[in-house]
Design a protein around this nucleic acid. Structure first.
Lengths: 188, 188
DNA sequence: AGATAAGCGGGGACTGTCTCCGTTTAACCC
DNA sequence: GGGTTAAACGGAGACAGTCCCCGCTTATCT
């Protein structure tokens, strides 16, 4: 489903450059980075940017899908190496680190787990929810995680932990600490 | 230290109207509400707004100090009615509810507990930290709360819980649930 | 090479922020 | 009351960002 017809060569070139520049810009200035500026730095007009990516959200998502999907794949790797409970904790840790370090990703992951918006069906949202579901269900089967909790709730809570850690501003030192508080609370 | 010289009558009038309108606007449109629009709705020029409140943050704070201080006072009321551990939990609940319901307050409370910015010394930051400290220390003395946790960390974690609850979008139903997860994790 | 439609890009309308400075007016003194 | 003065006002305008529109360019196919 990537594309019914292959893109024209120039379109493809511009698309790729925009993505590359956007990832840098969002990482540097956060999700509020100037879109016209991204267009300029990619050497295209703003019209081109808005045609490829109608909203800021769309660009944000496109710029980080690969990273998100890597995180999804990472869930399965970790699941092979550690017992379910620890695997979940470790994956959440990596998720939080990513959320904080790559500045633009916070907004993206946040909207991916927001209830009630139409953003629920984005590619990266699906990927995250899938990964979370596998780890959560395994941990519940093992008996190290409460049964009265849904995968998406775990993602939301992890987002909360990221927010709290960000406030502490200690270059991520707090993440493990705060996350362990959460996992303690999540035991049966 | 309210004011060395009393304000001129017109200045005081404008100041008050701005505050009233600002509280409404922030509640309605969130922290991003248009400042020029607030000025217009208050019937003053934008210059007047910016003279009284040099930054968005300043206006936000001025608009909600009374609410914040009420929350500070509430801490002591609750402390009289409930044993320390429960008192802390109840106060955090009210704090989270306020954070979510009054849209503009989230940004304000967030920056109040952010480490490393100069915003640390704001009036409402001090008020919150004081209230948190009293409840946290009481609970620790009682033995229902870990000793290796600081008051400000509790505030940051509560902010995280608010964020997570907000994502769930269930009109605050999740708050108790998510908060109890946190308090479970915070037990010794 | 020529036809054609996909794609480009930047000008411009619009919204919001924030400052500057000429004008107004409250407060004080006689 | 009337005059003086400094505090306060207000809105024009410079600037930055978003986003759309439409005449021009160019990749692709024959």
């Amino acid at each position: 489903m990537t594309q019914v017809k292959p893109m024209r060569a120039d379109a493809r070139r511009n698309y790729d450059r925009l993505l590359k520049v956007a990832a840098e810009a969002f990482a540097e200035h956060g999700e509020g980075a100037s879109l016209d500026d991204i267009a300029k730095r990619a050497g295209v007009g703003s019209g081109t940017l808005y045609r490829h990516f109608p909203t800021r959200q769309a660009l944000l998502e496109a710029a980080y899908v690969d990273r998100i999907e890597a995180l999804g794949a990472r869930a399965d790797e970790i699941a092979k190496e550690l017992p379910p409970g620890e695997a979940l904790a470790e994956w959440l840790y990596e998720l939080c680190v990513g959320t904080i370090q790559v500045r633009g990703m916070k907004a993206l992951l946040g909207s991916a787990v927001t209830d009630g918006s139409k953003a629920a069906l984005t590619a990266c949202g699906t990927s995250m929810k899938g990964a979370a579901q596998r780890l959560v269900e395994a941990a519940q089967r093992e008996g190290t995680l409460r049964h009265d909790i849904e995968p998406i709730e775990v993602l939301r809570l992890a987002h909360g932990v990221s927010t709290a850690s960000e406030l502490a501003n200690g270059q991520g030192k707090q993440i493990r600490r705060y996350l362990s508080l959460l996992t303690d609370g999540l035991r049966p």
